[in-house]
Computed example of a mutant assay.
Amino acid sequence: MPETPLTGGPALGVVGRGRLGAALLAACRADGTPVSLTASRGGGWQADAVPEVIVDASAPEAHDDVLGYCASHRVPLVACVSNLTDAQWTSLAELATVVPVVRATNLSFAHYLQLRIAEFTAALTRGPLGAAGTTVRERHPAGKAHRPSATALVLAETWTGASGRAVTDIADERAGLPVSEHELTHTWDGESLHVRHHVGSWAVPARGALTAARWARTAPPGLVTMRTVYDDLTARSTP
């Protein structure tokens, strides 16, 4: 593995050549972001220099190699693999004591807005005007690794944390076109409110991964989520 950083601008390492990894590489080519390292199950690790940030879009099987590389080279990590074991989540937290780690359950900015809307709704529905019931629905194409999705669980946890009321159901569906849908539904007597987020292209999470990588490049060590990234970036852009 290379021992010296690439100079002349931000450089990424992309681990994984699946749908997200391929979309991220395409996004890097489109906007001129250098990629100094790639790794995949079929191609192994290929590196010109140590990247400034690694985006892991691979699978749990590659987790130890990715964390070992980031720890030994002190490289920030954007971790996009959600179906990790408890031991692997613990290892991710340990890495965050020495480098910044973004735990990217969902990379989309609109998903961030959906979470903020859930919190806003929770604040306005306390007391006698409270929602009679809240549910989460998620849809992914057939072949999605696990169900319910990590994003659906985060939606449910966000609602419960903000409102003090658990969701009454999390429905998951495996059918249809890429990429995903996540919907939060609040039901009163005779009316309902649906907050739905639909992603139809892998270019969307790829843009989010680039945003997270640029943020992590100058962040201090610590384990954060995309919520922290977007909170920080929206705060900077607010007059």
Score class of each variant (00 low, 15 high):
residue 89 W to C: 11
residue 107 L to P: 06
residue 5 P to I: 12
residue 51 P to V: 15
residue 85 T to K: 02
residue 38 T to M: 10
residue 121 T to N: 07
residue 36 S to V: 11
residue 143 G to H: 08
residue 237 S to E: 07
residue 217 R to K: 00
residue 235 A to K: 00
residue 153 L to H: 09
residue 222 G to A: 07
residue 110 A to S: 14
residue 16 G to P: 03
residue 54 I to W: 02
residue 191 E to N: 12
residue 194 H to F: 13
residue 154 V to E: 14
residue 229 V to W: 04
residue 213 A to E: 01
residue 230 Y to E: 02
residue 93 A to W: 00
residue 208 G to M: 04
residue 36 S to K: 15
residue 134 T to C: 15
residue 81 V to D: 08
residue 205 P to Y: 08
residue 125 T to R: 11
residue 103 R to Q: 09
residue 232 D to A: 06
residue 167 V to P: 08
residue 199 V to H: 07
residue 68 G to S: 06
residue 173 E to D: 10
residue 217 R to C: 08
residue 234 T to W: 06
residue 118 A to P: 09
residue 158 T to V: 14
residue 68 G to Y: 06
residue 191 E to V: 12
residue 65 D to M: 10
residue 44 G to R: 13
residue 225 T to N: 01
residue 23 A to H: 05
residue 119 E to C: 08
residue 218 T to L: 14
residue 228 T to E: 14
residue 73 H to G: 00
residue 41 R to D: 07
residue 32 G to H: 00
residue 211 T to D: 12
residue 147 R to T: 02
residue 211 T to P: 01
residue 3 E to F: 02
residue 111 H to I: 06
residue 33 T to N: 01
residue 87 A to R: 12
residue 5 P to Q: 15
residue 181 E to M: 07
residue 197 H to E: 07
residue 188 W to V: 00
residue 202 W to E: 04
residue 43 G to F: 14
residue 100 P to Q: 12
residue 114 Q to G: 05
residue 60 P to R: 02
residue 4 T to L: 02
residue 205 P to Q: 12
residue 39 A to I: 05
residue 94 E to I: 01
residue 210 L to V: 07
residue 21 G to V: 05
residue 183 E to Y: 01
residue 129 L to Q: 15
residue 106 N to C: 06
residue 63 H to P: 06
residue 206 A to R: 04
residue 92 L to C: 02
residue 136 V to D: 03
residue 135 T to A: 11
residue 139 R to D: 03
residue 169 D to L: 04
residue 150 A to T: 09
residue 159 W to Y: 15
residue 12 L to E: 09
residue 104 A to Y: 11
residue 90 T to V: 13
residue 129 L to I: 03
residue 12 L to T: 11
residue 59 A to Y: 12
residue 210 L to P: 01
residue 206 A to T: 00
residue 160 T to M: 09
residue 215 W to R: 00
residue 225 T to S: 15
residue 215 W to N: 04
